[in-house]
Amino acid sequence: MVQSINQHEVKLDFRAKKFIIWLFVVSSTIMFGGWTSYYIVFAASKGKGHGLVLPDLFMYSTGVLLVSSVCLFLASRAFRNQEFSMQKFFLWLTLGLGVIFAYLQISAWGTLVQTGAVFSNNNAAISLIYVVSGFHILHILAGLGLVLGSLFGAYRNISVDRQQFRMEITSIFWHFIDILWIYLYVFLLLNS
């Protein structure tokens, strides 16, 4: 079936679709850029940031997310080396760590609420912590969907081209949300 259409056109199609993910990464970066620049202008004009000691949970979750990125990298490598059971193992690991990350983020909110730094706050900088981490969790959910897509592809044994395509877009997106969170965390640490 695949042979009947022009191989070249299909390759081109995958390249174009992969590029779509990159462009999504760009626009998403800009959205978070909008919030962090809001923060900078807000903090500069009011002379105050969120003024909190961020909960330790954020530090643990960052670690979890980093490890999950490493796992996804290992899964990609296993796929390239055609070690498919290893690939599935590391994909499951990535998925699990992603879920743990989301759980830790939400518990970190719990800690923040306990210290009185609630979302509906007269200090917009504190509200913004929830906004950026919340929208980051939405990205994590989307990323988990992509990981699941790669897993399904691996189990259903779809064509190698398509599996590779799925692995690639999952990697682009997951590493992006990893770096995005590190940016946000460091930003919040530096601008307290």
Binding site: S27, I30, G34, W35, F119, S127
Partner: peptide, 25 residues
């Protein structure tokens, strides 16, 4: 569009929170 519309989303999201969730952006 790709470079500017996400900023509108960022702004609109904060406006929604101000309207419905009691924040003070």
């Amino acid at each position: 569009g790709i470079l500017s519309f996400p900023v509108l989303v960022a702004g609109v999201v904060l406006l929604i929170f101000d309207r419905s969730f009691g924040t003070s952006f």
